Amino acid sequence: MNEFELEIKKLVIKTLNLEDITPEEIDSEERLFVDGLGLDSIDALELGVAIQKTYGIKINAKNEDLKDHFASVRSLAQFITSERKEMDA
């Protein structure tokens, strides 16, 4: 398992108080919202705030690709990595 994806899984569990699931039980490609893990829009807001605080990136709610970025743990990892590279450039 990718270390960064594992870190994000732990962040999701901690942020959303998902006590009945372990990071290993979350597939990196599994959908986070509705189907799959079953998160909702309030979870998305909480997770977005946690990601911004943890990784120091800005998330623009008007970004048309935001839904795709939050689709799975893997897409979140790619988004965060990309945003951090842009900040360092």
Rank of each mutant, 00 (worst) to 15 (best):
N2F: 05
N2T: 12
N2W: 07
N2A: 08
E3G: 05
F4A: 06
L6Q: 15
L6H: 13
L6T: 15
E7L: 14
E7Y: 09
K9P: 12
K9A: 13
K9C: 13
K10R: 15
K10W: 04
K10S: 13
I13M: 10
K14N: 14
K14E: 15
L16H: 06
N17F: 14
N17C: 14
N17V: 14
N17E: 15
L18E: 13
E19M: 05
E19G: 12
E19W: 02
D20H: 11
I21D: 10
I21T: 12
P23G: 07
E24G: 10
E24Q: 13
E25W: 05
I26Q: 02
D27A: 08
S28G: 14
E29G: 13
E29I: 11
E29Y: 10
F33G: 02
V34L: 14
V34R: 11
V34W: 10
D35F: 15
D35I: 15
D35R: 13
G36V: 12
L37Y: 04
G38Q: 03
L39W: 01
L39S: 07
L39R: 03
L39C: 10
D40E: 12
D40R: 10
D40F: 03
S41F: 05
S41P: 07
S41V: 09
S41M: 11
I42N: 08
I42A: 12
I42K: 07
D43S: 15
D43Q: 09
V49Y: 03
A50C: 08
A50L: 08
Q52Y: 00
Q52W: 00
Q52C: 04
Q52H: 01
K53R: 15
K53N: 14
Y55F: 08
Y55H: 06
Y55M: 02
G56K: 06
G56N: 11
I57Y: 01
I57T: 02
K58W: 03
K58Q: 09
K58R: 08
N60F: 01
N60A: 03
A61D: 02
A61T: 01
K62G: 01
K62H: 05
E64L: 00
E64T: 05
D65F: 09
D65H: 07
L66E: 00
L66Q: 01
L66V: 03
K67A: 12
K67Y: 06
D68Y: 05
H69T: 00
H69G: 00
H69V: 00
H69K: 12
H69S: 09
F70H: 02
F70C: 03
F70K: 01
A71H: 09
S72E: 04
V73F: 01
L76E: 03
A77P: 02
A77C: 02
F79Q: 04
F79M: 13
T81N: 08
T81C: 01
E83F: 00
E83S: 09
E83D: 05
R84G: 01
R84F: 00
R84Q: 15
K85I: 04
E86Q: 11
E86H: 07
D88A: 14
